[in-house]
Simulated scan of single mutants.
Amino acid sequence: MKKIINDPANVVAEALTGLAAAHGDLVSVHLDPDYVVSVDAPRRGKVGVVSGGGSGHEPLHAGFVGYGMLDAACPGPVFTSPTPDPILAATKAVDGGAGVLHIVKNYTGDVLNFETAAELAAAEGVGVEAVVIDDDVAVRDSLYTAGRRGVGGTVLAEKIVGAAAQRGDDLAAVAALCRRVNDNVASMGMALDSCTVPHAGKPTFELGPDEMEIGIGIHGEPGRERVPLEPANAIVERLLAPIVEDMPFESGDRTLLFVNGMGGTPLMELYVAYAHAEKVLAQRGIAVERRLVGNYITSLEMPGMSITLLRLDEEMIELWDAPVHTPALRWGR
């Protein structure tokens, strides 16, 4: 194992310390329990937006804390859900009297721990709504979930919902919007090789030099099938076909296309994939009106990518375009 770390047991705390040092103008970091909060939280009368999950998926979630996106994030150990304690602490830290929305990826530990934290917050007088994101079309059940996994759609939901909370929407409206995003987004990923979890010290799975895994999860969960390595265009078509068929997406739909790196994929390769994905969608009459390309929800250093497609409406477009200023995503401000 070759990684730029010290002790694997301290890697999350040290990374959070570095985040605070690099972006202290945007976020404050609390350790034991671990959570990251926007420097301007809580804001009186604003719905707080909180998300979280295992570390190793950076910049998700802590990199999206700031103006127009998340108010707080709870990073657990690598690939392991945060416990209820930091989720509760983050929820209370961003409560401005208008309630708090929890955006939860559909992994069993995340769902259970966020539920517990919401119950504890309610007992202390904080109103909480939760929306579970389950956009991965690769598998219905996995090692970590009952039902579909929450993956790239989480990034899009956090941006759109964060903008709605920023403009002053109430908790019911923000939660309904988050559900609408989840109902209109689909994702699928693939891997060329495994990642190595620091405390494990060895790859999570093994692929041959001429193999790739289609439908991989962000923790290295197995996907739909293991197949011979193909050129970029063929890989894109393998991922897009089940995505488009899932909704289904149809001719005339307006969409946001998100091509995401899994942590070990050069941006050059992501742009190669993006170009063909937009071409394939255009051939189907599906219009790409907004775009995102880069490493935004990763799996440590895994070489691979995911594709996410969101069916847009006018409100989603307006909220996507709204200003955002976080460590990892920023425009318009």
Rank of each mutant, 00 (worst) to 15 (best):
K2T: 14
K2D: 15
I4F: 15
D7F: 13
A15Y: 13
L19G: 01
L19W: 04
A21Y: 06
G24S: 11
S28K: 15
V29K: 04
P33H: 10
Y35F: 14
V37P: 07
V39K: 13
G45N: 12
G54M: 10
H57M: 03
H57K: 07
V65G: 06
G66C: 00
Y67Q: 12
Y67N: 14
G68L: 04
D71S: 14
P75I: 00
P77S: 13
V78D: 03
V94A: 08
A98M: 11
T108H: 06
G109T: 03
F114L: 09
E115F: 10
A117L: 01
L120T: 04
E124Q: 15
G125N: 11
G125D: 05
V126P: 08
V131M: 08
D135K: 03
D136R: 09
V139D: 11
R140E: 15
R140V: 14
A146G: 15
G153Q: 02
G153C: 06
A157M: 11
V161S: 02
G162D: 02
A163V: 08
Q166R: 15
R167D: 08
D170M: 04
A176Y: 01
C178H: 01
C178M: 12
R180S: 13
V181K: 10
N182F: 04
V185F: 09
S194C: 02
V197G: 02
V197M: 13
E213N: 13
G217P: 10
E221C: 05
G223Q: 08
E225I: 13
V227Q: 05
V227P: 07
P228L: 13
P228M: 10
L229G: 12
A234P: 05
I235P: 06
V236K: 02
E237Y: 00
E237L: 12
R238H: 11
L240D: 04
A241W: 02
P242Y: 09
E245T: 05
D253A: 05
L257V: 08
F258K: 00
V259L: 10
V259P: 01
M262V: 06
T265L: 08
E278T: 12
I286W: 03
E289I: 01
T298S: 14
E301Y: 09
P303A: 07
S306P: 11
E315D: 14
E315V: 10
E315T: 15
L319I: 04
L319D: 05
H325R: 14
R333Q: 14
